[in-house]
Amino acid sequence: MKTEKLTIKGMCFGEVLWDNLPTGRQLGGAPLNVAYHLNKLGVETMMLTRVGQDQAGDDLVRLCASLGIPTRLFQRDSKYPTSTVEVHIDENRDVTYEIVFPVAWDYIAVGMQELDAVKEADFLVFGTLSTRNQASYETWKMLLPFAKFKVLDVNLRAPFYTKERVLELLSHVDLVKMNQEELDMVATWMGLSETWTDRMKVDAIMESCYVDEVIITYGARGAVYHVQSAGFSYHFPALQVEVKDTIGSGDSFLAAFLAQRCRRDKVTSAEEMLSFAATLSGFITQSDGACPAYDSTILNRFQWIHDLKAFHIDERATS
């Protein structure tokens, strides 16, 4: 695996924030994490968001710029503060969040430069959380008609979602990523049987909501990529790594997948897309935080070591 400068462009919409972790403050927000990794992977990706006119906002914008995330569409708000989240990690390394409301990104505005940026992008990424407030929700609706390829990251954070809003978002997108728990929740809302397999649930959601592509992530068990128009589902296992924390692993998976899925210079197979995504997600899972520093050399070495370990395991199993 290598990183390279690609000709495609992306845009992410929604929350940026400071995650207050037990180990200290870290940059966060699912769409921001996706934007970070896309830019690291050679996909120029804008981030449309809003931060407060406060020290936390100054620090956040400064850090994003230093990390290579374009900040031209970072709006400043004089009334609402920069977002913060209290993050708790239990003994199983599972993560829970206490998300402050309202904050600056609940009031993302839209003008000509925002519309032009969406028109220029090859895809628009957003999450369910980013539409929790009416102001940003209305902005999302104005952006949607101009997006070439719409990607929804289902991230259900109680109490900031409703059945009606999530089902509406699902009906307007081309690609959806969610985990198994979120799949079961959506299936329940749609009245699907609990006895149905995940494949049956996904098929019903794709048919009802007119979504052609769905990715279901299963943590340590990997991910399954479903494509209705091609009539296939492809499972790829997760890399076996020593977990430090799972913060941002799904975001990195989505970024790596899109970097391959949307490229115009070659046709990429489902196996290549998912392998690339699993590798970056595995690297993030065994790293501290959602946006660790890395480059192509570090990723290539990580993949080489993993492939070497897998080879020795297979060799012992067949000897």
Rank of each mutant, 00 (worst) to 15 (best):
S233E: 15
A259F: 00
V95Q: 10
G282T: 13
E44C: 05
E207Y: 06
A223S: 13
F311N: 14
A317T: 15
L152H: 01
R132I: 08
T188E: 12
V173H: 03
L239C: 12
K9M: 14
Y137M: 09
R316L: 09
E272A: 13
L175W: 03
A255V: 03
Q113K: 07
M11Q: 09
A117V: 07
T96L: 11
C12K: 01
I108P: 04
M46A: 09
Y218Q: 13
T128F: 01
T128R: 03
G29D: 04
D212H: 10
R261L: 03
T82C: 03
K201A: 09
T71R: 01
I313R: 13
G68M: 02
W304P: 02
V224L: 12
A135N: 11
A204Q: 09
A277W: 01
V43K: 07
F283C: 00
D153N: 04
A259Y: 01
A30Q: 07
I284V: 11
E194G: 01
T285D: 15
N33K: 02
Y137V: 03
V43P: 06
A317D: 15
L169C: 15
F149V: 01
L115T: 10
G68E: 00
R264H: 14
L41N: 04
S275K: 14
L48D: 09
P145E: 00
D122P: 06
V95Y: 09
S229L: 00
A223K: 05
D265Q: 06
C291A: 13
L299D: 01
D116V: 12
M190F: 05
A135V: 11
W140G: 03
L169Q: 15
N300Q: 15
L169W: 08
Y294S: 05
A121I: 12
A56H: 15
F257P: 00
R199C: 12
T246I: 06
L60D: 04
E271T: 06
S269K: 03
L32F: 10
C12I: 01
L115H: 13
D245W: 05
D314P: 07
G24W: 07
R264V: 12
R72H: 10
F311D: 15
D203I: 06
L63A: 00
Y80L: 13
E181P: 00
M112V: 05
V100G: 00
T139G: 06
G222I: 09
M185D: 01
Y234S: 08
G57S: 09
D251F: 02
T246R: 06
L143Q: 04
H306E: 13
A278G: 00
Y218L: 12
C12V: 01
Y107D: 11
D58S: 15
V87S: 11
W196Y: 13
K2G: 02
E181W: 06
V176E: 09
L63S: 03
R93W: 00
A290R: 04
Y36N: 07
W304R: 05
A35V: 01
K40I: 05
I69A: 04
F236K: 11
F74V: 08
L156Q: 09
T128K: 02
V110P: 04
Y218W: 10
D19Q: 04
D245L: 06
L124Q: 04
E315C: 10
D307A: 15
N155Q: 10
T128Y: 00
T217I: 11
L32T: 06
F101M: 06
F232N: 07
S296D: 13
D174A: 05
V227K: 15
A104N: 05
Q180D: 14
F311V: 10
